[in-house]
Simulated scan of single mutants.
Amino acid sequence: MTVKERLQELREQIANTPGKNDKKGLFIELLAYNNYAVANGDDRDITSIKELDSYWKKPITKHGVFDKMYDDLTDEHIINHANDPKGFKSALEKAQD
């Protein structure tokens, strides 16, 4: 499975998951894969990504800013950001600085 395919799978899972709290882990994973794709391309096999948790997810959740921003999102916002994570990523980076 490629990063692009995994991103699409995560988008579908987020859209089909009923509870906001249940979407949180999926959304973090999607943001991590998206950050990886921006840096390395989305055609890579996901099995070759060794540092997803430590290198790609950790910066997303540092300082607790993600949790505060996520709490303010509606389910519709989460789905919209999953389909186009650039805006959320930018706002998160600004808030963490």
Results as ranks from 00 to 15, higher is better:
1 M>L: 11
2 T>E: 01
2 T>P: 00
3 V>I: 13
3 V>R: 03
3 V>K: 04
3 V>L: 04
4 K>R: 12
5 E>G: 01
5 E>S: 13
6 R>L: 07
6 R>H: 08
7 L>N: 03
7 L>G: 05
8 Q>L: 13
8 Q>F: 13
9 E>A: 12
10 L>R: 03
10 L>A: 05
12 E>G: 06
14 I>W: 07
15 A>G: 02
16 N>R: 09
17 T>Q: 05
19 G>L: 13
19 G>A: 15
19 G>C: 00
20 K>P: 07
20 K>F: 08
21 N>F: 08
21 N>T: 11
21 N>Q: 12
21 N>G: 04
22 D>W: 00
25 G>E: 11
25 G>N: 08
27 F>A: 01
27 F>G: 01
28 I>D: 02
28 I>M: 11
30 L>G: 05
32 A>K: 03
33 Y>F: 14
37 A>T: 02
38 V>L: 14
38 V>R: 11
39 A>G: 01
39 A>H: 07
40 N>Y: 15
40 N>E: 13
41 G>M: 10
41 G>Q: 11
42 D>E: 15
42 D>A: 15
44 R>I: 08
45 D>T: 03
46 I>A: 03
46 I>V: 15
47 T>A: 08
48 S>E: 08
48 S>N: 06
50 K>W: 10
51 E>H: 10
52 L>R: 00
52 L>N: 04
53 D>A: 08
55 Y>W: 06
57 K>F: 10
59 P>C: 05
59 P>M: 07
60 I>K: 04
60 I>T: 04
61 T>I: 15
61 T>V: 15
63 H>R: 14
63 H>E: 15
64 G>A: 11
64 G>W: 05
65 V>Q: 01
66 F>L: 07
67 D>H: 09
68 K>Q: 14
70 Y>T: 04
71 D>M: 09
73 L>H: 03
75 D>R: 06
76 E>M: 00
77 H>W: 03
78 I>A: 00
80 N>R: 11
81 H>Q: 07
81 H>A: 10
82 A>W: 07
82 A>H: 04
83 N>C: 05
87 G>Q: 06
87 G>C: 05
89 K>F: 07
90 S>R: 14
91 A>R: 13
92 L>Q: 09
92 L>W: 13
92 L>P: 09
92 L>R: 03
93 E>S: 09
93 E>I: 06
94 K>C: 05
97 D>N: 15
97 D>F: 13
